[in-house]
Design a protein around this nucleic acid. Structure first.
Lengths: 234, 234
DNA sequence: ACGAAAAACTGAAAAAAGTCATTTTTTAGA
DNA sequence: TCTAAAAAATGACTTTTTTCAGTTTTTCGT
């Protein structure tokens, strides 16, 4: 049995992967009609907090961070993987973007104008129903995240994030091969909600416990079970 | 200009108040048909984490806390006021309740079976559209909450919660009259994500600064502006 | 392959938060 | 109104986290 089976990672990881999959042909045609795609290089901003949304984004390749700017620094809220949809909250709530998005690696992102998105929402209730389900699930996951921040130590939070990130970076590696997480200490710190120095310190602790190794900025995970223990993951 | 006007409290406070308001008569009739209502005394549990949802709840009178159980203690996620809808996330995501709900004071709560709720969702897209908007907004607010936990000190978090709670308890008092927040130190601690001792200590700090007074368990707020400063509220 | 710039790492000290034991005050029921 | 139980408040102490100043290592463009 896989770790994935034993421990429902997605309790801590909302995914919007399936929203646009297998929609009726007509709906799909509308969404495709004016769709455009664009490559983003590492670090490039896709949309910015406070901007007016003109459509939704679909990650075709790569990984994207969603983050909020906060006194000079940033707080990463979520790492979205290829296949996922981003930017639709602001479109649906008819507000400005509450957060920014930037590529974590070379990525390709598709764009669908909000008019087309709304047209499909209007036409069929399949998309509505899926979105309601996804948004409700996301709410649940975020509430878990809040509890995590409020009740767990930095060490526990880091352990859990490493488990979640390992799942995201899994796709880049062959099964059985140890997974390498390719994220700067600064981004990792921002995701965990602490300073980069603490991440470095706790990572070397984990190295001593033979949970992982670091290769420059890459973190190679060897012992997920110990991480689960440390994360006190339930 | 009111504090409310100057500072958009609802950046930190999602409200589902208007979801069922002014729906088309037919939709409203369906929702009312099998609706039932029940009084809950202070502390009484309305639904429990892990249970299977059979419908959604509407707070007619009183206040309700939504919380997650976590190693013996609890983490309060949200204080819902009269007029608000709760329990619909689990119904929409077709999962079990991710959190529990209990009355914070004598309350009256209405119950609408999920079949009726789904029927209205199916019939008209007004409710769908509203829910999509509300859920997206809630997502944004929760993400703000996460950032708060991750980046702010206990003092700042408490100050902000007092501002938000003051708005909720406002309805119980005449305009101009100082607002009394009636919440145990333990619940307040759980909402802020710290131990009750810390709440007591920071509250007495605030008393010295003439921001508030305490009357037993009640907290009377006198100087919201200072709280806003401390909360570093942007 | 080289060198400058960026990122990662280290140590020490200060501040913040958490814990535990105990006293005082408040609440709620008889 | 009195009293027992619950909640709030206080003090001393421990642990965790933050901060700052610096060194070493890695990365990346040429």
């Amino acid at each position: 049995m896989s770790i994935r089976g034993l421990f429902p990672i997605d309790k801590w990881d909302f995914k919007s992967e399936s929203i646009l999959m297998n929609l009726p042909d007509e709906d799909f045609a509308i969404l495709s009609a004016n769709q455009s795609e664009q490559p983003y290089s590492k670090g490039e901003v896709i949309f910015r907090e406070g901007g007016y949304p003109t459509g939704i984004f679909y990650i075709k390749e790569g990984k994207v961070k969603k983050y909020k700017l906060i006194d000079g620094g940033e707080q990463i809220i979520y790492v979205a993987n290829s296949g996922e949809l981003i930017g639709y909250h602001a479109v649906l709530s008819e507000e400005r973007f509450p957060d920014s998005a930037a590529a974590l690696e070379e990525s390709v992102v598709g764009f669908i104008p909000k008019e087309d998105f709304f047209e499909v929402l209007q036409r069929s209730n399949i998309l509505s129903r899926r979105l309601l389900k996804t948004l409700s699930h996301e709410f649940t996951v975020l509430a878990n995240g809040m509890t995590l921040f409020a009740q767990r130590s930095v060490r526990e939070r880091l352990a859990l994030q490493l488990i979640v990130l390992r799942e995201k970076y899994k796709t880049n590696f062959k099964p059985g091969e140890p997974v390498e997480i390719n994220l700067s200490r600064e981004d990792l710190a921002s995701l965990v909600g602490t300073a980069k120095e603490n991440i470095v310190r706790i990572l070397s602790e984990f190295k001593e416990k033979e949970i992982l190794k670091t290769k420059g900025r890459k973190i190679v995970i060897y012992d997920v079970k110990k991480l689960i223990e440390i994360a006190n993951y339930k």
